[in-house]
Design a protein around this nucleic acid. Structure first.
Length: 432
RNA sequence: GGAGAAAUACCCAAGUGGUGAAGGGGACGGUUUGCUAAACCGUUAGCAGGGGCGACUCUGGCGAGGGUUCAAAUCCCUCUUUCUCCGCCA
């Protein structure tokens, strides 16, 4: 959520920044409505002041034996006017809130306009592997090895679902353990949140109201009072849970930065996004991810973003996978984020790099939506924290990358060394 | 799932229709003191939102949202959470 005072003070600046994100907004009606709203608040509050005063007079006059019927009549009149005005103000507030909540974050300085095509590769690690044989697609590899079962995944749940089995399940779990170990060593606190979250969580994260279609919502027996058509949804990423941990809280400055990580499956409806070239486990309705998250002081968030990026990079490096880091153009950043870097791993069969981690700084955008503040020790004032998140990592892209980058001529796959301690020392995955 | 009880500040807690939300603990500030403790004095209802250049002032706020009333922490309704009991259960 953007700062309404910033819009009031300098809407030209806000418009310019939003234009970089490809959003054009005319603030003139908004500002006029805001003035009307404030005027009405002012007159209504004066009426309330009168009501409070007269209210106190009633028992006083009664005690003195005076007639209060005229006073009561006037009070009734004021009361009706107040009621009417309060309703108008509530409507205006709602309209204003919906407008502001619908605006995306402003891109940070240095974020270039445009979409994907303007993303800039800022670094690469390792080299594309060279094969002395015809490399296989990861779907063919995992089916040959019998470690991912797509057919039965579809039988159990429908397309876009798969079953990890045997060494596949072990490799998946080893990856998660490897990530977790890494974050624990760095002093991040481990969180296992609920997977079913309420509407407010999605609002704070910035997924709602705009991106409701991308998530799975749950029906319950009594949805009659569910304002948005559902009471709970399955989290699309544990970021949604982590950013809500301190919703409506005022943190002590000394507690910051708060560093968390969480493991959860991520559930996404991915409506209509299936693409033929993404067969396999590149895009599914459920995938595993460890998410790293920080709440920081405003002036420390840029530095924290670098920390998150290098943490995610270190994980991919440890696995010995070739990848690159891209700085996203404004329109490729999600709505809540002011700056995002993607770590993209090389998938030979796709002849392309696919995102395994997205590291973002939301600035105070999510903190405003979720009312997450800290007490500034110097000023004694409450200010909004900054929130940052990064995947650390998503397995659904790493797994195929391992399959394809570590495949051998005989169809077996070498287990990256860092994972072996979590797999009883297994060095290679062979067919069952 | 059923029945009952509760929700007031950092904590405990009073307040069942009439201006300004008791009291205690804690915390913070001060006096006294060589230091600590004690004692004494004071501050501590967050927060959000209006108006004003400003000193300042007004409004809302007693879990949340509605309602009744001239007036609501107090009465009524809905919801949320917590606790107790019953049922079911990994």
């Amino acid at each position: 959520m953007l700062d309404i005072n910033l819009i009031r003070k300098n809407y030209e600046y806000v418009s310019e920044k939003l234009a970089i994100k490809g959003v054009s907004v005319d603030f003139s009606e908004f500002l006029a409505d805001d003035q009307k709203r404030r005027d009405l608040i002012h007159t209504t509050e004066q009426l309330k002041a009168e009501r409070n005063k007269s209210s106190a007079d009633v028992p006083k006059y009664k005690k003195e034996g005076k007639d209060v019927s005229e006073l009561l009549a006037r009070m009734r009149e004021i009361g009706d006017q107040i009621k009417e005005n309060d309703q108008l103000i509530a409507d205006m507030n709602q309209k204003q809130n919906e407008f502001i909540a619908g605006l995306p974050n402003l891109p940070a300085d240095g974020v270039v306009p445009g979409g994907k095509e303007n993303n800039q590769v800022i670094s690469t690690f390792g080299e594309k592997p060279v094969f002395s044989f015809e490399p296989q697609h990861h779907v063919d590899i995992v089916e040959h090895l019998g470690i991912i079962d797509y057919a039965r995944g579809a039988k159990l749940s429908g397309s876009g679902n798969w079953v990890y089995r045997g060494m596949g399940a072990q490799l998946e779990w080893a990856l998660l353990n490897y990530f977790i170990q890494n974050h624990l060593v760095d002093g991040y606190e481990m969180i296992l949140p609920p997977h079913l979250l309420n509407y407010e969580c999605g609002f704070t994260a910035g997924q709602f109201p705009k991106f409701v279609d991308d998530i799975f919502t749950l029906r319950s027996k009594d949805d009659s009072d569910a304002v948005h058509g559902f009471k709970r949804f399955l989290l699309p990423t544990s970021e949604t849970a982590l950013v809500n941990l301190h919703r409506d809280e005022i943190l002590n400055q000394a507690e910051l930065p708060k560093k968390y990580f969480a493991y959860t499956p991520c559930y996404r409806s991915e409506a209509g996004s299936y693409r033929a070239e993404e067969r396999g486990m590149i895009r599914g309705h459920q995938f595993n991810k460890v998410e790293i998250f920080q709440y920081t002081l405003p002036h420390n968030s840029d530095q924290a973003l670098q920390e998150l990026i290098s943490k995610a990079e270190r994980l991919v490096q440890g696995l010995g996978l070739h990848y690159r880091v891209s700085k996203l153009a404004a329109e490729d950043c999600s709505a809540s984020m002011r700056e995002t870097y993607d770590i993209e791993v090389w998938i030979p069969s796709m002849n392309d790099y696919k995102e395994v981690s997205s590291a973002s700084n939301a600035g105070d955008y999510q903190a405003r939506r979720g009312n997450i503040r800290f007490r500034n020790e110097e000023t004694g004032k409450n200010e909004y924290v900054h929130t940052l998140n990064a995947s650390g990592l998503a397995t659904s892209r790493i797994f195929p990358a391992i399959m394809e980058q570590y495949q051998q001529a005989d169809g077996t796959v070498i287990v990256p060394e860092v994972l072996r301690p979590f797999m009883n020392g297994a060095e290679v995955i062979c067919p069952r």
